[in-house]
Structure formats: structure tokens, C-alpha cells
Design a protein around this nucleic acid. Structure first.
Length: 112
DNA sequence: TGCGTGACTCGAA
DNA sequence: CTTCGAGCCACGC
């Protein structure tokens, strides 16, 4: 199983209405300290891949904007708002309120 | 085979 | 608050 496969598997566990940071995904995928890989992996995700990529945001509680995303970053904000997630004046999400907390069963099976 | 290119994070100054 | 360095994968040409 490649690192990217592990990342995708973890991202698919994020429930509706919750978000996770790149660092969290890396940690839960057995890739501690490699948050950057998560960004690299999500860059390659396609709509038909059935991966809730929009639920992954950066550690500051913001969407990572980039010219390379061709508007996909804006779509991310729309999708999150459709799940009831709120953005404050600075465009930030309250991680204390929306951060995903994976359960023990998932972690132990995913980090085997 | 080598090189360029990407959705990151954290601590230190 | 801002900037900087280090960490260091996968893919296409």
C-alpha cells in the first residue's frame, strides 16, 4: 500500500460536517510529520474518486488557496458551507468546533 | 535516471 | 504579525 493510498483511505473516514487538517491526515495515516505529502496527494484527486477532499484544510483553519487549483479552492468553501460549516470574518473555520476526532478502532486498524 | 513541480507544518527570530 | 528553514513523496517528461 503506497503512502498516497493510505492518505486517501484516511480522508475517506472524515464524516459529513467535519474537517481535518493536513497534519492530522498525515498522522492518522502513519506519516507523522509529512503533512506536505497530504497536500501533494490531494492535488491529484479527481471528482470521480469519491474522496471528500474538501474536508481537509490547513492547521490555521483556513482553506489553502492556490492559483494551481483552478478555482477548486473556491469550490471547497462552497462545499463546506453546504455541510453547515461556518467561516468567520477572516475566512477561518473554528477547529475546536469542527475538527474530526477519529475513533480508536479506526486508528488501530489503519496504523497496523 | 534526473529534474521540476505541487492543497503543509512547526518552531525560531 | 511576518519571514525563514527543514522535512523530503509521487508523477510526468
Amino acid at each position: 500500500m503506497s503512502n498516497y493510498d493510505r492518505i486517501y483511505t484516511t480522508v475517506r473516514q472524515i464524516p459529513w460536517g467535519k474537517v481535518a487538517t493536513y497534519g492530522q491526515i498525515a498522522d492518522f495515516s502513519g506519516l507523522y510529520g509529512k503533512a506536505r505529502l497530504v497536500g501533494y496527494a490531494l492535488f491529484r484527486v479527481q471528482i470521480e474518486d469519491d474522496i471528500p477532499w474538501h474536508r481537509v484544510i490547513n492547521a490555521q483553519g483556513e482553506i489553502s488557496y492556490s492559483l494551481q487549483r483552478q478555482g477548486g479552492d473556491y469550490l471547497q468553501k462552497v462545499l463546506l458551507e453546504e455541510e453547515g460549516i461556518e467561516f468567520n470574518k477572516s475566512g477561518k473555520i473554528d477547529l475546536n468546533k469542527y475538527r474530526w476526532q477519529p475513533n480508536f478502532n479506526f486508528l488501530s486498524s489503519n496504523l497496523d
